[in-house]
Design a protein around this nucleic acid. Sequence first.
DNA 1: ATATTTTGACTGAATGTTCATTCAAAATAT
DNA 2: ATATTTTGAATGAACATTCAGTCAAAATAT
Lengths: 215, 215
Amino acid sequence: MNIVPALDGERKSRKASKETRRSQLIEATIDSLAKRGYSDTTLANVADGAGLSRGIVNFHFESKEKLLVATLQHMSDEYSGHWNAALEKAGPRAADRIWALINADFDRRICTKRKLAAWCAFWGEAKSRPTYQALCGMNDRDYQQTFVTLCTALKAEGGYGYDPEAMALGICSMMEGLWFRLMMNDGLTREKALAAAIEYVAAVFPDHISTSGVK
Amino acid sequence: MNIVPALDGERKSRKASKETRRSQLIEATIDSLAKRGYSDTTLANVADGAGLSRGIVNFHFESKEKLLVATLQHMSDEYSGHWNAALEKAGPRAADRIWALINADFDRRICTKRKLAAWCAFWGEAKSRPTYQALCGMNDRDYQQTFVTLCTALKAEGGYGYDPEAMALGICSMMEGLWFRLMMNDGLTREKALAAAIEYVAAVFPDHISTSGVK
DNA sequence: ATATTTTGACTGAATGTTCATTCAAAATAT
DNA sequence: ATATTTTGAATGAACATTCAGTCAAAATAT
């Protein structure tokens, strides 16, 4: 069972730091959510997945509910950290920023089947659990608001006729829907999804964006 | 508890037809999924919601799993029946058909918080349950294929430069995402979602569709 | 340096709860 | 009278949670 030698000082030494154990358990939780879904994820599954004993989750997280909240928090932080970083890297021009956000959403690091499936497991429970809903909703509001600002800027520059609020809502919805379909539909690849998203913004902002990049 | 008098011959006569009982239980299941989510929906909840006794579900459906599959099947049939009917009513012109499909998706009868929440409960479980995935996926494929055909027709008529596959994927994804946000976000109304969807197709097919209707 | 004590992460068997399912009896219909 | 439907208590399986005990490493004493 305990095959790992001394090599991995963090992972299997009897005393790993509390933080290390916590993230180890959070990763195992994501694995289980992705493989088994929300309702079939048990603490036994998580503990087995982490290669630790049965009581371990309650020791580090007090309860199953708190483990799940910590897991969602972790994914949420990672996601919003990622798109905020992409925004920082992009220049100040609105078209560049939109381009960066769209590409960030389909980045290899963020947009894996494993993570999408875990997200979806939480979404399915979110409406009936205020805690999950709050965690999912918080980022979303920021994210959509960012798009409203950018669409407003492009409209001012380019003289498009659209309502920026409606446009931003449409774009954000499309990207969420693409994520969802990536998870559900085995035929769809990250590349195709990204291409569809870009085709759309290129169609909507023809003066600023084309399928091959920002003009 | 049992307040309903004789009035409702279908609902509380001791012998309601098997089919009547089944749909009564299916409706109670949708209620519970919407209120409590998938993982907190129990047979006791469903039976209570229907105003019947605890053992009743197993009598009519054999198992919880079969009740849930029947419920999903019911929602799926209703949904695809609705958009197919909308297509029949619309004329043969591609732009009219797209307009009809989009409006159908946000129709008052289909697009209720209750039903969206129930859909979402199933989506969250679908990736790890082949039966659900098959039921969700079947319609979706038809639906998206319908849009591919329509986008192809518009492209031929209007000389747009888009790839019809990518465009159809984008549109379907957006509508799914809008449904999702309708369920999650209390500030969003059916009317705003519909307006965003229409703005989207109007932007993409400017020669055929405007925000006020088909040209 | 070596031995002893203390610390705190970790284990896994035991416990109690929740829940789907079963079924014998009751109610109702034919 | 017989068949069908409904009830609700009983059953047992699955699961989260608890906790007394184990163990490795750190701290301290000799």
